[in-house]
């Protein structure tokens, strides 16, 4: 497979995880592209304006990329902490639209500011890797790390508190869960993942502009999660990988490819209302793997 496409798929999976984190807590936040855009802008600005980061070698040092990631995480984290306090008082579709408004405000401001390069954006972002394969390996490691953290989160107290809020916020609160702080945690984690992903994407894409964090991106990333499933972290990863790859894999059908892509998004939820990947799927798989076929499974109905 083309390493460039693989890299895009991995970035899609990371963005899917970013939308998934608040959704697992029952919060429909579409702010991911906004934080993604902030991460990308931070990386683009630092790597093109600060000669100290460039190092002496022929390629841009990875330590500088890591430093950009830390700064992007710090910035998006602090921003999410402040904004989250305010917007998370909203529920359901109101939260979704407030976050869309945030993304749009951010996009318009980036588009009009001088130092972010306006409509053209920032060009010539230095490359820490010679090839797309290098990026893919780096992003794969990052994805694996974040997946592992998500898995840990789901098995620990804050993660379980998130699931409880998703099922019933009032009941969760009456069990002594601090719902406001738990929701805020999910929102901040989502922003951190999006910001870090933005840093990698900016280097990979080589240029960065305001268009990369827009309304379309909000909805597409939401589709990753709803299509893949929002019950475990594997869902958004699967959805992100597949739905990012799909338009490219459909190249052979030419002009029809986006129509087919739309049809997949349209039909997917009809057949998989919980998303494709659900905990039940694992249970079924486990049963099939562990147990020899029973007479009932062979079609012998009593």
């Amino acid at each position: 497979m083309d390493a460039g496409l693989l890299e895009q798929m991995l970035l899609g999976a990371l963005l899917g995880l970013s939308v998934y984190l608040p959704l697992r807590c029952g919060q429909l936040s579409l702010a991911t592209p906004g934080f993604f855009a902030i991460g990308g802008t931070v990386a683009a600005l630092l790597s093109t304006r600060l000669p100290a980061l460039a190092g002496s070698g022929s390629t841009y040092p990875i330590t500088s990329v890591l430093l950009e990631m830390a700064l992007a995480a710090l910035l998006t984290g602090v921003l999410a902490l402040g904004l989250g306090r305010v917007v998370l008082r909203l529920r359901g579709i109101y939260l979704a639209i407030a976050t869309i408004a945030l993304v749009e405000i951010l996009r318009v401001v980036t588009l009009n500011l001088e130092f972010t390069g306006g409509a053209l954006g920032i060009f010539g972002i230095p490359q820490p890797f010679d090839s797309a394969a290098g990026y893919a390996a780096f992003t794969l490691a990052l994805l694996a790390l974040i997946c592992w953290l998500c898995d840990r989160l789901e098995k620990t107290r804050p993660g379980r508190a998130m699931a409880a809020i998703r099922d019933d916020e009032l009941a969760a609160a009456s069990q002594g869960i601090n719902t406001a702080d738990t929701k805020l945690l999910a929102f901040v984690l989502s922003a951190l993942v999006a910001g870090i992903t933005g840093v990698v994407a900016a280097h990979f894409l080589n240029s960065w502009n305001a268009k990369l964090g827009n309304f379309d991106a909000s909805i597409t990333t939401l589709a990753f999660v709803v299509f893949g499933g929002s019950r475990t972290w594997l869902g958004p990863v699967f959805g992100g990988l597949l739905l990012t790859a799909l338009p490219e894999l459909l190249r052979p059908v030419g002009d029809l490819r986006l129509i087919v892509f739309g049809a997949v998004i349209l039909v997917g939820p009809l057949f998989f209302p919980q998303g494709v990947i659900t905990p039940e799927l694992f249970k079924t798989l486990k049963r099939i793997m562990l147990r020899p076929p029973t007479p009932a499974a062979q079609g012998g109905k009593p």
């Binding site: 589709a223 986006l258 739309g262 939820p269």
Partner: peptide
């Protein structure tokens, strides 16, 4: 309607209608 008939999560209609929109625009 298919979502309503199955009593699915209303959130899913955001995605199915998005899919329909993508189809229309590209058509």
């Amino acid at each position: 309607r298919p979502l309503r008939d199955r009593g699915s999560d209303p959130l899913l209609a955001l995605i199915t209608s998005l899919g329909a929109g993508v189809i229309l625009v590209n058509l």
